[in-house]
Design a binder for these strands. Structure first.
Lengths: 365, 365
DNA sequence: ACTAGGATTGAGACCGGACTCACAATGGGG
DNA sequence: CCCCATTGTGAGTCCGGTCTCAATCCTAGT
């Protein structure tokens, strides 16, 4: 149907040069806008290029400039609006600076992340932005730095590495929000996270994720301030799919000394927890208080609106890309290093609890 | 700190060949697993490669195989969970087949889309998946096909082009959901969309988006079935940012003969509409009924849960990637072509309206 | 022993731009 | 009028792989 009689061959500088009756070198100069080219030659070349609708092969160009104008982005799950928003920040900045983005999901699997890093390195991306699945196993990230390629981390720190990281201080905000819950009379606070671990949580356990570890630290600090014992039995990890989240939620709410408040570690998990609470016929915040990480728009639409920890996710993505591009351009990190602070947005899902009361349907042992 | 004494140079086949004391060609064969290689040579080469931690340069490889193992994905806005989910479907399939994904946002701007197509073509992606911003201006998409590169459309059709498209039949589902609203006694149904147009909507107007055009078609059909006049004055486009959405919502609800039901054209817009309704102090569904496109998890958490049009977005992404990869592999489109149907999920946000009644706070003229 | 025919092997040509280098042409200053 | 600085130009190399081709090695058949 279409007008191309010839087979697959694409137009190259050589073709343009022939059409303009100059040497390949001259054509390349005129096209690439470098070196010395007479006006006559330049116009002939550009005309020929236009005529043949020539387009440079970026692959070839990349190969001998060593720059692919591409950055690799490795996130846990693009389906999670948290990463969607961060990715948006990254792509916006990248586009502005003429970079493209190759995106890889890891499903928070370390193995997938290691492979992703390798693939992107092989593709010779100019730099990498990674939201690392593990803060402990950082061998592959180290290798990125060893290879001399710029690297910026997002959301989570990597233990022992000197690398620019765009993340909020989770200890602070977690301490603050736990204080809020404690002040509201809650002492049995459950923390539910998708983080995968070999064994159930025990106090003092070393966690793979700096983010979760920091949040638990913050909680513990808030408990210590009041000289209360942190209820480690209410820390529930491995809340993978909707079903297990539901099960865990029922567990912490129906156990003998049940949780009176639940903290959801991210927006996706929050959905299933709230559903489970509603299924149990419990009311927020009358029967159980609720607090979640990430301030998505829909949290304002529930009844009551949900109390959340808002993180400047978009800006973190923006800053990560900016920092990476600075590194790519050989510039030093911008000083002072950008700081990101999460804020506790108090809406209606945390309620005051009278100390003596026990939840409906349970008995004091 | 790290152990590399040498400058930037990466390890190449030539280095491996030298170390293994064979020719470049032999090393390449052993590494690439093609041609005839003796066991002795193979093991020496692999050992040397391991020793030097050699990694092939994918750029160079792509350049002379002509395959980049990369597909380009162009969407309106990755921040929109609709596209987040679709992208997830695409990346999952791509990864399974060994492809990477370059992602570009267009903000639904045609100009950005045209440039994105060009950039990806220049990068020699093996194929493109596009959610086209316009169903009318398809010149750039045509050019993709002319260049012989595989192309699959997502979500929206492109007028007059023969191209595989993964989308639901919007006319059908729109007719069905409009019927539902009409049966519930609503005749003043507002339709609010972000679609950008030069002028406000008029009956019979040609729209840039097949999706929106189809939805309006479906609505009109449902009205015609009942021999009712379709209220074109309640079709509101250009609902760009949260502020304009709020303004429009107020307009249609506070006008003399106000809307008694609102249809939100996507999940993002829905958030602002519901907020605006709540701000007006109106209750869903008592005062105004509400229906939205896209079945996000949070729609089950509002009070009442929202009635939605669920689209198999993830599967559409999956199928788009599958179809594209088939094209890349030179296979014919799978038959029968995959069909996607949206379903109306009736939850609580559409209420029955007694015909004679007028909404609280308004008077019959 | 001698050779046909397959298995191995190395040299070098590509892919498509970027860039170096040697050389020609122009032209301004002394 | 000559010399050197400044363009303008084409030939050719390089990037790091893939792949062709001809040469060489080996082994079995006669």
């Amino acid at each position: 149907m279409s007008s191309n009689g010839s087979r697959r061959r694409e137009i190259t500088v050589a073709d343009v040069a022939k059409a303009a009756q100059v040497s390949k070198a001259q054509a390349a100069r005129a096209l690439g806008n470098y070196g010395a080219v007479s006006d006559d030659v330049r116009s002939r070349v550009l005309a020929a290029a236009e005529e043949l609708s020539y387009r440079p092969n970026e692959l070839a160009r990349s190969m001998n400039t060593g720059k692919s104008n591409t950055i690799g982005v490795i996130v846990g799950d693009i389906e999670n609006p948290h990463f969607g928003l961060a990715t948006r920040g990254i792509t916006d900045t990248a586009k502005k600076s003429g970079f493209n983005v190759i995106l890889i999901n890891t499903d928070e699997e370390l193995a997938a992340e290691i492979e992703a890093v390798q693939v992107l390195l092989d593709k010779r991306v100019d730099g990498l932005i990674v939201a690392p699945a593990s803060s402990v196993e950082t061998h592959h990230l180290q290798r990125v730095q060893d290879s001399g390629r710029p690297l910026v981390l997002l959301d989570r720190h990597a233990g022992g590495m000197e690398v620019e990281t765009m993340a909020v201080d989770m200890v602070d905000i977690s301490r603050e929000s736990t204080r809020h819950l404690l002040q509201s009379g809650h002492q049995r606070i459950a923390f539910i996270s998708t983080l995968k671990t070999e064994t159930p949580y025990r106090a003092g356990m070393v966690l793979d994720s700096s983010q979760i570890a920091d949040r638990l630290d913050g909680m513990q600090q808030a408990y210590q301030e009041r000289e209360l014992v942190f209820p480690a039995d209410l820390v529930r990890l491995n809340a993978g799919d909707a079903e297990s989240i539901r099960r865990i939620t029922r567990e912490v709410l129906l156990m003998p000394d049940p949780a009176t408040a639940i903290v959801a570690s991210d927006g996706l998990i929050a959905l299933s927890i709230v559903e489970a609470i509603q299924e149990l016929g419990l009311a927020i915040p009358a029967d159980v208080s609720f607090l979640m990480y990430d301030d998505f728009a829909w949290t304002r639409l529930t009844t009551p609106p949900l109390t959340v920890v808002a993180q400047p996710v978009y800006n973190m993505g923006l800053a990560a890309a900016k920092a990476l591009i600075r590194q790519i351009d050989g510039l030093p990190p911008s000083t002072p290093a950008p700081q990101f602070t999460a804020t506790l947005v108090r809406r209606g899902s945390v309620g005051t609890r009278k100390c003596a009361e026990t939840p409906a349907g349970t008995t004091v042992p």
